[in-house]
Design a protein around this nucleic acid. Sequence first.
DNA 1: TGTGAACTGTCAGTCGCTGTCACTAACCTG
DNA 2: CAGGTTAGTGACAGCGACTGACAGTTCACA
Lengths: 222, 222
Amino acid sequence: MTDERPARAAGLRERKKRRTRDALLRAALLLFISQGYENTTVDEITETVEVSQRTFFRYFANKEEVAFAVQDLVESHFVAALGARPAGEPPLAAMRGAVLAAWDTLDEALSEVVPVDLYMQAYRLIESTPALLAVHLRRSTELEERIARLVAEREGLDLDADPRPRIAVAAFCGVMRVTGRLWGQGEDVSVTAIRRMTEAYLDQIGPALASDWHRPAPVEGG
Amino acid sequence: MTDERPARAAGLRERKKRRTRDALLRAALLLFISQGYENTTVDEITETVEVSQRTFFRYFANKEEVAFAVQDLVESHFVAALGARPAGEPPLAAMRGAVLAAWDTLDEALSEVVPVDLYMQAYRLIESTPALLAVHLRRSTELEERIARLVAEREGLDLDADPRPRIAVAAFCGVMRVTGRLWGQGEDVSVTAIRRMTEAYLDQIGPALASDWHRPAPVEGG
DNA sequence: TGTGAACTGTCAGTCGCTGTCACTAACCTG
DNA sequence: CAGGTTAGTGACAGCGACTGACAGTTCACA
């Protein structure tokens, strides 16, 4: 939750806590990826770290939470990128610019915690595990609300009086989710691939909502 | 799963099965609504119906499934409505027409199974229970895929070669989900209310994706 | 009417998760 | 540095969702 990474050497107790938490996180992710989420018991995780099961549940509210620790960082990274867009930019353009910028800088943003490839694997795990996907989507609605507030703020609008921020964000996020899903099903696991798909799909949002689909030609395949 | 409602009097065994299934379904919904989903144990459900817990799990794969039985019907009702739209109608217009038509005819569509009000209560329960909401959203992505196939078919397109069907459907469903959420948080529980909100929000999808938000005025509040 | 298949109950067991309690290591005070 | 407080931990007991195995009952169909 409140991560407080920059708190350097804040007492022995603190450091010990962070160490066990990180150990649990890493062990869990590796086990999930190698043998699947459902096939991994909490006991297995705690055994490899050599702590009691009770300790695991003191650091993570439930088994799911550990799977979304890195995803949390990525989402905050996007929100930060959106906050950094120039004020004059229209909403959809700003969101588009923010995702693309976020993909471009993801590497450095995560490098201190986890290699990007591990995150990518974790993301595919989430997409392919029904129980995790469900939680992911619910969390996404919370992210949507966060983004909508940001957008409303940028435009100087009252979120509860004007539905356009939520609607624009919903449409945008809907497309992003399709992108993530199709990327997860595809074969190219790279960040480059998902960045390319992001761009291509967002470019299609206008044509897709137009009345006549029979004029312009499609651009991108699966 | 395969519902087969029209199978009339198909043997004593069949009827008995349907009776216990329906009894479990009704008992579960009533308990969920009156005391909450998490606060209701499977044992409670089976006790009121007087069957063993094992029997419950033979009819429903898990506790969640029973909460979505009616939602299943509603979604199929929408898909049917979409299938009935005139062939010439553009995608977005067709989907819009289908939802509205579905709301208008929901009463008769459900009346044989469950009163509409009970469904509305169940829907609000889903929206307000994190665990159920998560599953609902995952199921929604499956519905999206179904709709996208239908849309692609209508337009004579290959779903895997042209991203527009999935994108249009994603944007549309994103807006529908915002609608459902805000309706669930609002005070007017009626079908009329959600129908009105549906219309208003879908009308804002164009303006919301436009570059300049500072010309047109908002229409609907929370 | 009898035989096989379908449906159900009982029981035991796994796994995720929570409450409790006692122990110990880290921090704080004087 | 002695003594008290506090936070992190382990061991254990328990609940609820869910599953597998097996046996008893009930219906379908020849």
